[in-house]
Amino acid sequence: MIKRIYNRVLKHVYTIPSLEKYSDSIYKTAVQQHAVNLPPMSTGDLKIVETLKNEGVAISSLEELATPSSSKMTSAAKKLMPLIPCITKKNEFVVHATNEQIMEYPEIFLWGLERRILNIAENYFNLPVAYHGAYFRRDIANKVQRKSRLWHLDGEDRQVFKVIIYLHDVNEDQGPFQYIPVSTTQKLVERLKYRQGYIQDTVMQQNVSSSDYKSCLGVAGTVIFAATSHIFHRGKIPVASDRFSLFFDYTSRLPKYPFVNRYSLPQDYLLSLSRKITQHQLQSLLWQNYKVK
């Protein structure tokens, strides 16, 4: 609680116009200087990045991406699925795998460091990538409407990038990831004078047609790339069955709020995992040691 209050105060300090202008200037310079260092990509991956920037979401699949560790990751995820309980606290709607479970099945966490995924993220950010970790979610089929089930933008950084993988077929009744495209979101931010927080669907429907809601449907293995700081998004409430999915979180290594540590695992676990990866992956995992100069 004390840390959250401290971070909130610091965030307020970082909005002082002179400091914000200085921070933005450093950021823009870094983006310009890094342009010559961006990793090359295939035509397909360039299309993913372009779609992310224009639409806010690009959809692929584990089969199309064909990353080397996908089979090990999906095998580990299938073993972990029955171990995630369906019981939640009152007024809660999601159960996460514990840190210990993630460490027992490290293939899940390490998939997020696949070179192809990092290259897509880097070309989206136009800066080196900070990997914040993986989350194994079981979203419960109940009627709770709060937090990530409400419309919101991710405001942890200038650009937040997430990769979502469905672990079973997801239709409209199984809690798909929903979003409002970039151009419409920009208009809504101005209309609602949005700064942060969650928006009830009743409020959203007063300001935009529900036809602008885009549901990401797909079979098991569907991969969703989402620019969650630039699109209003939510997890639609599942009604037919619980939804199992994986979330992988990324920002650049030049965060707007450098004091915010968003790692999904404790430091000692990260150090243990770091022994299993390449130098390139290490720079994204222990990114605070490899910040943009």
Rank of each mutant, 00 (worst) to 15 (best):
V144N: 11
M204H: 13
V182W: 02
Q145C: 15
D139T: 11
L192S: 08
I199Q: 11
F161R: 01
N54Y: 12
N207P: 15
T184K: 09
K47H: 06
Y194F: 15
K72D: 00
L62Q: 04
Q33N: 10
E92F: 15
A240F: 05
L118C: 02
T185H: 04
N99M: 05
K276C: 05
K79L: 14
Q159M: 13
A35M: 06
S69M: 00
V223D: 01
L270V: 04
Y6D: 05
E190K: 13
N289A: 13
N289V: 01
A134V: 13
E55G: 04
L265H: 00
A220P: 09
L192H: 08
L113G: 02
E50T: 09
W287P: 12
I199K: 10
L271C: 03
L46A: 12
I199L: 15
T15D: 13
G56Y: 06
P106S: 10
I140H: 02
H168R: 07
F232Y: 10
T29A: 12
I164S: 12
D24G: 03
N126Q: 14
Y135E: 15
E64G: 04
P17S: 05
V203I: 15
G221V: 00
R234K: 15
N119A: 04
R116Y: 03
A141M: 02
L52F: 09
K79V: 08
T278M: 01
W287D: 08
Y250H: 04
R8P: 02
Q206P: 03
Y124R: 01
Y135K: 14
R191Q: 15
L83Y: 00
E156G: 08
S42G: 12
V160D: 11
V160T: 12
S209P: 05
Q145E: 12
N126P: 04
T88C: 14
S69N: 02
H168T: 10
K214Y: 07
Y22Q: 05
S148I: 13
D154I: 01
I237E: 14
N7W: 03
S284A: 14
F259Q: 04
T43C: 10
V203Y: 06
S274W: 04
A227R: 06
I117W: 04
Q205P: 01
A76E: 00
K11A: 12
T67R: 02
K143N: 13
V9P: 00
Q288F: 11
K143R: 14
Q205R: 11
G56P: 07
K214G: 11
I108R: 01
N126S: 13
H152F: 08
I59F: 06
Q32M: 05
M204T: 12
K143Y: 11
R243Y: 02
F136I: 11
E172K: 07
E122T: 09
K11D: 09
G56D: 06
V160A: 15
G112K: 07
V94G: 05
N261E: 07
I108G: 06
T251G: 10
